[in-house]
Simulated scan of single mutants.
Amino acid sequence: MDEEGWFSVTPEEIAIRHAGRCTGHEVVIDAFSGVGGNAIQFARKGCHVIAIDIDPAKVALAMNNAKVYGVEEYIDFIVGDFFALAPSLKGDIVFLSPPWGGPSYKDVQTFTLELLKPVDGYTLFKVAQAITPNIIMFLPRNINLEQVAELCRLSSPPLELEVELNHVQNYLKGVTLYFGSTVAAPPRFSIRM
């Protein structure tokens, strides 16, 4: 991994939880795959993964990491812009872990969907929803949960939402949002709209 990969990769135990929601789904689109942490865990669950990243160096690192884990045959790596590719993509689940702006996200008291990169969270969600209603979003621990609830109303009919607080060694690392068929039954903590 490169320096950015170390602070931006999803911790392995969280990536394993994300992948656990994908059983029974054939194709997972990892829209911002980075060095491949989540793509690898989806592939380990037997999913076919389309791993997209705009940075060719990150894709090369992700390909190497997939070989280390022995899952490279389950992942199609694409160097490209998710937004340009999205209209032609088909998949059962879209996984979104967009850039949070680096470690400085922790300095913001309440992280809003407008702070996500390269576009705001509302736009990102709409683009993913055009592919499938089954969406998993991994966001900063200080995300504005009121805004998260608004995402449900972007669909017709409104989607169910499950919010999972992700801890690593008793430290809140991030928040995962599950939409569509990725919602567990019964959810631990959920907002139904």
Rank of each mutant, 00 (worst) to 15 (best):
T182H: 00
H167A: 09
I75K: 05
T110R: 13
A185P: 00
W100S: 06
A51L: 08
S190C: 11
L124P: 00
L151I: 12
V79P: 06
A19M: 06
N65H: 12
A62E: 03
N64F: 14
V28S: 05
F42R: 04
V119R: 10
R21A: 10
L154W: 01
E150H: 13
K126T: 01
N65S: 14
Y171E: 15
V68N: 11
E4N: 14
E12W: 14
L85N: 07
D53Q: 05
Q147G: 10
A86P: 02
F189K: 08
T132W: 01
A130M: 09
G101P: 10
F42A: 09
R141N: 14
F189D: 08
C152Q: 12
S156C: 04
H167N: 11
D2F: 14
G180V: 02
D76S: 14
A128T: 08
L159F: 00
P118H: 06
F125V: 01
P118D: 09
T110F: 01
N65V: 08
A51C: 09
A86C: 10
K67T: 14
I136E: 06
I16D: 12
D107S: 15
G36H: 04
K106F: 07
I135Y: 00
N38S: 15
M1V: 13
E12S: 12
W100L: 05
F95A: 09
A66Q: 05
A66K: 07
I131E: 00
I52L: 11
L139D: 06
A130T: 07
I191H: 12
K90L: 10
S190V: 10
I191P: 00
W6M: 15
V79S: 07
T123F: 09
N65F: 05
E26Y: 04
E160C: 11
V108N: 06
G70N: 11
P87H: 07
I16H: 08
P98D: 05
S104K: 15
V108Q: 10
G101V: 13
G24S: 06
R44Y: 04
A149V: 13
V71S: 07
V35E: 10
V175F: 01
Y74P: 00
D53S: 04
T23L: 14
I78H: 03
P133E: 05
P99V: 12
L177D: 05
L85S: 08
Q169A: 15
P98S: 11
M1D: 12
F77C: 07
H25D: 05
A86F: 06
S156F: 06
L154I: 08
N65R: 13
V27Y: 03
A51Q: 07
V59N: 03
P103H: 08
V119E: 01
L172V: 10
L165Y: 15
E146P: 00
S155R: 06
A15S: 15
V59Y: 03
I52C: 06
V27F: 04
